[in-house]
């Protein structure tokens, strides 16, 4: 077996007294698509952000492509170039045009010359179906378009791994599809992807593996049809019932509240 693209070992993360990640072990193979699901506050974002060291783990190790990210002597900027990240809030650079959003990082970080950077930018804008928006500014784009530009910006750096943190959660429902379509084709091209999402149909269709997190640990993981279709753990079943039928969740919460106060 080849070395995994991402390896997380004994990962703990605390914010002060808040022990958010309580021992995570996870391996993601090259070209594998892993969807991470779980209730709010379970530590999904924190796990993702520990992989490219936006958060410093309190304990444990993270390897990406064989390099130990958590090694204090590692050139973290160099490692991050190999890891693309897509945020819930897009985080496009608002003072730059769409093309400049893609070319500036290539030129400043990868030291590509202007012509090469522009060629790569055009390729990747075409890849996400936004070639005609090259000259626009982010504020003139819809949320779905902004998120696709953000994906193109990450891809333009030629990453080996892509991390997605709820990429469609800030979007109007009718714009979700376009972003998921881009991610689907990326998965088909063999990109290694770690996706935090609440889109169960996407997870079911695209993921090779689904990881369910709760309370800072991985509760269960496996093929999507198994984790989503026939969950083994009560906590997973509970979470899925709330996600798949939000109306039910409200009733449950109401009952719980009454129990708590009365």
């Amino acid at each position: 077996m080849t070395t995994p693209e991402i390896r997380v070992q004994g990962l703990h993360k605390s914010f002060g007294d808040n022990h958010v990640l309580r021992g995570i072990d996870l391996e993601i193979a090259q070209g594998e698509v892993v969807c991470v699901i779980g209730p709010s506050g379970s530590g999904k974002s924190t796990l993702l952000r520990c992989v490219n060291l936006l958060e410093e783990p309190t304990e444990g190790q993270v390897f990406v492509g064989g390099t130990e990210v958590t090694d204090p002597d590692v050139d973290i900027d160099a490692v991050r170039r190999r890891i693309g990240m897509v945020f819930q809030q897009f985080n496009l650079f608002p003072h730059l045009s769409v093309t400049e959003n893609l070319t500036l990082p290539q030129r400043r970080v990868l030291r590509r010359d202007k012509a090469a950077a522009e060629r790569v930018a055009a390729e990747n804008l075409a890849r996400v179906g936004l070639a005609e928006k090259a000259g626009a500014y982010p504020s003139a784009l819809s949320g779905g378009q902004q998120q696709r530009v953000a994906i193109a910006r990450a891809l333009a750096m030629g990453p080996e791994v892509m991390l997605f943190d709820e990429p469609t959660s800030a979007l109007d429902p009718e714009l979700v599809g376009d972003v998921l379509a881009v991610m689907r084709s990326l998965a088909r091209e063999g990109m290694t992807m770690m996706v935090v999402t609440h889109e169960m149909s996407f997870a079911r269709e695209v993921a090779d593996r689904v990881v369910f997190m709760d309370g800072g640990v991985i509760v269960e993981q496996g093929r999507p049809e198994q984790v989503i279709g026939a969950p083994r753990h009560e906590r997973t079943r509970h979470f899925l019932s709330r996600i798949l039928d939000p109306a039910m969740a409200e009733v449950e919460e109401g009952v719980a509240d009454q129990g708590g106060t009365g």
Binding site: N52, L54, D77, A78, R80, R81, I83, G84, M85, F87, Q89, N91, L92, F93, L104, P105, R108, V109, L110, A150, R153, A154, M157
Partner: peptide, 20 residues
Amino acid sequence: GQMEAARSLGFSPARAMVSI
């Protein structure tokens, strides 16, 4: 998020400050 986006693209803190 602007600093985080820049850092995740491989900008050093100083370069992110100046460019972004």
